[in-house]
């Protein structure tokens, strides 16, 4: 059985391009506003969407995503709103996953969480703070339900450990381009191509690069060596900087269209 995410990468590989993956926390800028952002992503040509589960203690996230998460939590966003947003994305015809810290999964119920992902058309879950050593219950659940477990690997992941992590992944492998937290940066780390090359020696799975990508030029650069380009903070920044919701949504759509061009120019 394949997920929509698996099918997406078959398609983008056939088209010899990278996939554009966009991130938005559920409940941001508001519970209804998030659904409009998802539509703007789709209209702008995004291939897959990550719905973030806003969390009180996001240690992997920089100030931009923290601010978005705080705003989403203030709107009362919880598991229900996350799965609703996921369904909006999958109903719009794109592959979608949830990105969440581990505790909300554990609190919701590990297998129940995987089941709710599948029930809402989701392809998988990105778990940035779940180490493979602690992943036994999650592995059992995702295998039973048939969704993609997506783990993050970092430039500091050793050659010995790398295959241990990548062999646990499904859908794609999330390559963190640099040592640091989420946020836009003027250049994508030079460590990213090296990390992707190291991952390739361990796995046939698609590899998506995240952390620090915000422009068409950067997307083009990453698309030259990776199968997917992940953009999060740049979209959130566009929404936070906008004077009203309408102009924010327009900015998101414009940025998505530019990035969609970028991921097609890399090769």
């Amino acid at each position: 059985m394949t997920t929509a995410l698996d099918d997406l990468f078959v398609k983008t590989r056939a088209e010899n391009r990278a996939a554009l993956i966009a991130y938005i926390p559920a409940g941001f800028p508001s519970i209804e506003g998030c659904k409009k952002v998802i539509q703007a992503f789709v209209d702008g040509g995004v291939d897959a969407i990550e719905i973030g589960f806003p969390y009180s203690d996001p240690v992997m996230d920089g100030p931009t995503i923290q601010a978005a998460a705080d705003q989403a939590l203030a709107h009362g966003t919880g598991a229900k709103e996350v799965f609703e947003a996921l369904k909006v994305a999958t109903d719009a015809g794109v592959a979608a996953v949830v990105m969440t810290y581990w505790n909300p999964i554990e609190k919701y119920g590990v297998e129940k969480f995987a089941q709710s992902i599948a029930d809402n058309g989701g392809s998988g879950v990105i778990t940035p703070d779940l180490t493979i050593e602690e992943s036994a219950s999650w592995k059992a659940a995702v295998e039973k339900i048939g969704i993609n477990p997506i783990y993050v690997v970092a430039p500091s992941t050793t050659d010995t450990r790398l295959p241990q992590v990548t062999s646990r992944c499904g859908g794609f492998i999330y390559a963190a381009s640099l040592m640091g937290v989420t946020g836009t940066r003027t250049s994508v780390s030079t460590g990213a191509p090296d990390l992707v090359a190291r991952i390739r020696t361990t796995s046939q799975l698609p590899i998506a690069v995240g952390l620090g990508v915000s422009t068409r030029e950067q997307a083009k650069g990453v698309a030259g060596y990776a199968d997917g380009v992940i953009v999060g903070s740049a979209f959130i920044k566009a929404l936070l900087d906008a004077s009203d919701e309408e102009s924010g949504l327009a900015a998101v759509k414009t940025l998505a269209s530019e990035l969609a061009l970028g991921v097609r120019e890399g090769r």
Binding site: V59, M60, W102, P128, D129, L130, T131, E133, E134, Y151, V152, V153, A154, P155, S156, T157, T158, R161, V165, A176, M179, G180
Partner: peptide, 21 residues
């Protein structure tokens, strides 16, 4: 060896920190 006390403890961190730990 992985720092568990019964079901507690362990390591729930970004992969980037594993090397340092």
């Amino acid at each position: 060896l992985a720092g568990h006390f019964g079901p507690y403890g362990g390591r729930f961190v970004p992969e980037a920190l594993i090397g340092a730990l």
